[in-house]
Protein backbone atom coordinates (compact mmCIF):
# COMPACT_ATOMS: atom_id res chain seq x y z
CA UNK A 1 0.00 0.00 0.00
CA UNK A 2 2.87 2.36 0.85
CA UNK A 3 4.49 1.68 -2.53
CA UNK A 4 1.21 2.31 -4.34
CA UNK A 5 0.76 5.56 -2.41
CA UNK A 6 4.22 6.71 -3.51
CA UNK A 7 3.39 6.03 -7.15
CA UNK A 8 0.05 7.76 -6.80
CA UNK A 9 1.68 10.81 -5.23
CA UNK A 10 4.32 11.01 -7.97
CA UNK A 11 1.85 10.69 -10.82
CA UNK A 12 -0.43 13.23 -9.16
CA UNK A 13 2.40 15.78 -9.10
CA UNK A 14 3.51 15.01 -12.63
CA UNK A 15 0.12 14.65 -14.33
CA UNK A 16 -0.25 18.40 -14.31
CA UNK A 17 3.41 19.01 -15.25
CA UNK A 18 4.52 19.72 -18.82
CA UNK A 19 6.81 17.66 -21.07
CA UNK A 20 8.59 20.84 -22.13
CA UNK A 21 10.01 23.93 -20.41
CA UNK A 22 7.34 26.20 -18.91
CA UNK A 23 6.96 29.89 -19.74
CA UNK A 24 8.86 30.73 -16.56
CA UNK A 25 11.75 28.46 -17.55
CA UNK A 26 11.84 29.94 -21.05
CA UNK A 27 12.15 33.38 -19.45
CA UNK A 28 15.15 32.18 -17.44
CA UNK A 29 16.67 30.71 -20.62
CA UNK A 30 16.13 33.97 -22.51
CA UNK A 31 17.81 35.94 -19.73
CA UNK A 32 21.05 34.00 -20.25
CA UNK A 33 24.07 35.51 -21.99
CA UNK A 34 24.16 32.33 -24.08
CA UNK A 35 20.62 30.99 -24.58
CA UNK A 36 20.64 27.32 -23.49
CA UNK A 37 17.18 26.39 -24.89
CA UNK A 38 18.36 24.44 -27.95
CA UNK A 39 21.05 22.54 -26.13
CA UNK A 40 18.66 21.65 -23.29
CA UNK A 41 16.02 20.32 -25.69
CA UNK A 42 18.62 18.46 -27.74
CA UNK A 43 20.14 16.89 -24.63
CA UNK A 44 16.73 15.70 -23.41
CA UNK A 45 16.16 14.12 -26.82
CA UNK A 46 19.60 12.49 -27.02
CA UNK A 47 19.43 11.10 -23.51
CA UNK A 48 15.97 9.70 -24.28
CA UNK A 49 17.44 7.44 -26.97
CA UNK A 50 20.20 6.28 -24.64
CA UNK A 51 17.84 5.71 -21.70
CA UNK A 52 15.26 3.79 -23.73
CA UNK A 53 17.94 1.62 -25.34
CA UNK A 54 19.59 0.73 -22.01
CA UNK A 55 16.21 0.20 -20.33
CA UNK A 56 15.08 -2.19 -23.04
CA UNK A 57 18.41 -4.04 -22.86
CA UNK A 58 17.95 -4.45 -19.10
CA UNK A 59 14.30 -5.48 -18.96
CA UNK A 60 13.77 -6.98 -22.41
CA UNK A 61 12.44 -5.50 -25.63
CA UNK A 62 8.89 -6.43 -24.67
CA UNK A 63 8.99 -3.84 -21.87
CA UNK A 64 10.59 -1.06 -23.91
CA UNK A 65 7.42 1.04 -23.71
CA UNK A 66 7.75 1.17 -19.93
CA UNK A 67 11.13 2.84 -20.46
CA UNK A 68 9.46 5.57 -22.54
CA UNK A 69 6.90 6.16 -19.81
CA UNK A 70 9.53 6.35 -17.08
CA UNK A 71 11.60 8.77 -19.13
CA UNK A 72 8.60 10.98 -19.82
CA UNK A 73 7.85 11.26 -16.12
CA UNK A 74 11.52 11.91 -15.39
CA UNK A 75 11.63 14.79 -17.88
CA UNK A 76 8.54 16.37 -16.31
CA UNK A 77 10.12 16.18 -12.88
CA UNK A 78 13.43 17.53 -14.28
CA UNK A 79 11.77 20.67 -15.68
CA UNK A 80 9.66 21.13 -12.56
CA UNK A 81 12.64 20.91 -10.21
CA UNK A 82 14.81 23.08 -12.48
CA UNK A 83 12.21 25.85 -12.33
CA UNK A 84 11.92 25.62 -8.57
CA UNK A 85 15.73 25.63 -8.18
CA UNK A 86 16.10 28.72 -10.37
CA UNK A 87 13.39 30.56 -8.44
CA UNK A 88 15.18 29.98 -5.15
CA UNK A 89 18.56 30.85 -6.68
CA UNK A 90 17.06 34.09 -8.01
CA UNK A 91 15.76 34.89 -4.56
CA UNK A 92 19.04 34.00 -2.88
CA UNK A 93 21.46 35.68 -5.28
CA UNK A 94 19.22 38.47 -6.67
CA UNK A 95 20.26 37.62 -10.24
CA UNK A 96 18.27 36.41 -13.23
CA UNK A 97 21.10 35.46 -15.55
CA UNK A 98 22.06 31.82 -14.89
CA UNK A 99 23.96 31.42 -18.13
CA UNK A 100 26.87 29.47 -16.70
CA UNK A 101 24.73 27.01 -14.74
CA UNK A 102 22.16 26.55 -17.51
CA UNK A 103 24.87 25.88 -20.09
CA UNK A 104 26.55 23.28 -17.90
CA UNK A 105 26.08 19.85 -19.43
CA UNK A 106 26.99 18.03 -16.22
CA UNK A 107 24.45 20.02 -14.20
CA UNK A 108 21.62 19.13 -16.58
CA UNK A 109 22.60 15.48 -16.95
CA UNK A 110 22.87 15.12 -13.17
CA UNK A 111 19.54 16.84 -12.59
CA UNK A 112 17.77 14.68 -15.15
CA UNK A 113 19.45 11.57 -13.73
CA UNK A 114 18.23 12.51 -10.25
CA UNK A 115 14.67 13.01 -11.52
CA UNK A 116 14.82 9.62 -13.25
CA UNK A 117 16.25 8.00 -10.14
CA UNK A 118 13.21 9.24 -8.19
CA UNK A 119 10.84 7.88 -10.84
CA UNK A 120 12.67 4.55 -11.15
CA UNK A 121 12.91 4.09 -7.38
CA UNK A 122 9.22 4.88 -6.96
CA UNK A 123 8.24 2.18 -9.44
CA UNK A 124 11.18 -0.13 -8.80
CA UNK A 125 10.34 -0.44 -5.13
CA UNK A 126 6.86 -1.53 -6.07
CA UNK A 127 8.16 -4.11 -8.52
CA UNK A 128 10.71 -5.51 -6.10
CA UNK A 129 8.10 -5.90 -3.39
CA UNK A 130 5.68 -7.80 -5.55
CA UNK A 131 8.35 -9.88 -7.25
CA UNK A 132 11.76 -10.24 -5.66
CA UNK A 133 13.43 -11.34 -8.87
CA UNK A 134 11.95 -8.55 -10.99
CA UNK A 135 14.27 -7.19 -13.67
CA UNK A 136 13.28 -3.71 -12.55
CA UNK A 137 15.23 -4.28 -9.34
CA UNK A 138 18.42 -4.30 -11.41
CA UNK A 139 17.74 -0.74 -12.47
CA UNK A 140 18.25 0.63 -9.00
CA UNK A 141 20.99 3.15 -8.18
CA UNK A 142 23.73 3.45 -9.48
CA UNK A 143 22.32 2.06 -12.73
CA UNK A 144 21.37 5.54 -13.96
CA UNK A 145 24.98 6.78 -13.57
CA UNK A 146 26.21 4.15 -16.00
CA UNK A 147 23.39 4.88 -18.45
CA UNK A 148 24.29 8.58 -18.67
CA UNK A 149 28.02 8.01 -18.14
CA UNK A 150 27.84 10.29 -15.13
CA UNK A 151 30.35 10.59 -12.31
CA UNK A 152 28.89 9.80 -8.90
CA UNK A 153 30.55 12.90 -7.46
CA UNK A 154 28.72 15.15 -9.95
CA UNK A 155 25.40 13.43 -9.30
CA UNK A 156 25.92 13.98 -5.56
CA UNK A 157 26.03 17.74 -6.09
CA UNK A 158 22.40 18.00 -7.19
CA UNK A 159 20.80 15.77 -4.55
CA UNK A 160 20.38 18.24 -1.69
CA UNK A 161 19.15 21.07 -3.92
CA UNK A 162 16.78 18.61 -5.58
CA UNK A 163 15.25 17.69 -2.22
CA UNK A 164 14.90 21.34 -1.24
CA UNK A 165 13.38 22.26 -4.61
CA UNK A 166 10.72 19.53 -4.61
CA UNK A 167 8.60 19.76 -1.46
CA UNK A 168 6.24 17.05 -2.71
CA UNK A 169 8.83 14.28 -2.47
CA UNK A 170 7.65 11.54 -0.16
CA UNK A 171 9.56 10.75 3.00
CA UNK A 172 10.43 7.41 1.43
CA UNK A 173 11.96 9.09 -1.61
CA UNK A 174 14.00 11.51 0.50
CA UNK A 175 15.34 8.50 2.37
CA UNK A 176 16.17 6.80 -0.90
CA UNK A 177 18.12 9.83 -2.13
CA UNK A 178 19.90 10.01 1.19
CA UNK A 179 20.94 6.37 0.78
CA UNK A 180 22.31 7.25 -2.68
CA UNK A 181 24.28 10.10 -1.07
CA UNK A 182 25.76 7.80 1.53
CA UNK A 183 26.76 5.26 -1.07
CA UNK A 184 28.50 7.95 -3.11
CA UNK A 185 30.23 9.41 -0.10
CA UNK A 186 31.37 6.06 1.23
CA UNK A 187 32.49 4.37 -1.97
CA UNK A 188 31.39 5.56 -5.42
CA UNK A 189 33.09 8.97 -5.25
CA UNK A 190 36.38 7.28 -4.38
CA UNK A 191 36.60 5.05 -7.41
CA UNK A 192 39.36 5.73 -9.91
CA UNK A 193 38.45 8.41 -12.45
CA UNK A 194 36.38 10.38 -9.93
CA UNK A 195 36.68 14.19 -10.30
CA UNK A 196 37.13 14.29 -6.54
CA UNK A 197 40.85 13.48 -6.78
CA UNK A 198 41.56 16.36 -9.15
CA UNK A 199 39.65 18.74 -6.84
CA UNK A 200 41.66 17.58 -3.83
CA UNK A 201 44.86 18.09 -5.82
CA UNK A 202 43.80 21.60 -6.88
CA UNK A 203 42.80 22.46 -3.34
CA UNK A 204 46.21 21.33 -2.05
CA UNK A 205 47.98 23.35 -4.73
CA UNK A 206 46.01 26.49 -3.81
CA UNK A 207 46.83 25.89 -0.18
CA UNK A 208 50.56 25.56 -0.82
CA UNK A 209 50.58 28.69 -3.01
CA UNK A 210 48.82 30.90 -0.49
CA UNK A 211 50.49 29.67 2.69
CA UNK A 212 54.01 29.70 4.06
CA UNK A 213 55.63 26.29 3.66
CA UNK A 214 54.41 24.18 6.52
CA UNK A 215 54.83 20.51 7.31
CA UNK A 216 52.04 18.58 5.64
CA UNK A 217 49.32 17.44 8.00
CA UNK A 218 48.23 13.87 7.94
Amino acid sequence: RAAMNNIQQLTMILNSAADKPSETLIKYFNNCTVNPTDSILKRVENLEHIFKKKFAEAVGQGCAEIGSQRYKLGVRLYYRVMESMLKSEEERLSVQNFSQLLNDNIFHTSLLACALEVVMATYGRNASQSDGASAETDLSFPWILNVFDLKAFDFYKVIESFIKAEPSLTREMIKHLERCEHRIMESLAWQSGSPLFELIKQSKERESQSDQPEPTAT
Partner: peptide
Protein backbone atom coordinates in the same frame (compact mmCIF):
# COMPACT_ATOMS: atom_id res chain seq x y z
CA UNK B 1 12.52 16.33 5.32
CA UNK B 2 13.19 16.84 9.01
CA UNK B 3 15.22 13.59 9.12
CA UNK B 4 17.41 14.57 6.19
CA UNK B 5 20.85 15.91 7.01
CA UNK B 6 21.39 19.08 4.98
CA UNK B 7 25.05 19.61 4.12
CA UNK B 8 25.00 22.93 2.26
CA UNK B 9 25.92 25.85 4.44
CA UNK B 10 23.76 28.91 4.97
CA UNK B 11 23.85 31.04 1.84
CA UNK B 12 25.11 28.21 -0.37
CA UNK B 13 23.20 26.74 -3.29
CA UNK B 14 23.45 24.79 -6.51
CA UNK B 15 25.25 27.66 -8.29
CA UNK B 16 28.26 27.42 -6.00
CA UNK B 17 28.46 23.65 -6.45
CA UNK B 18 28.80 24.06 -10.21
CA UNK B 19 31.35 26.87 -9.85
CA UNK B 20 29.05 29.61 -11.07
CA UNK B 21 29.27 33.26 -10.08
Amino acid sequence: VQDYHFGLEEGEGISELFDCD
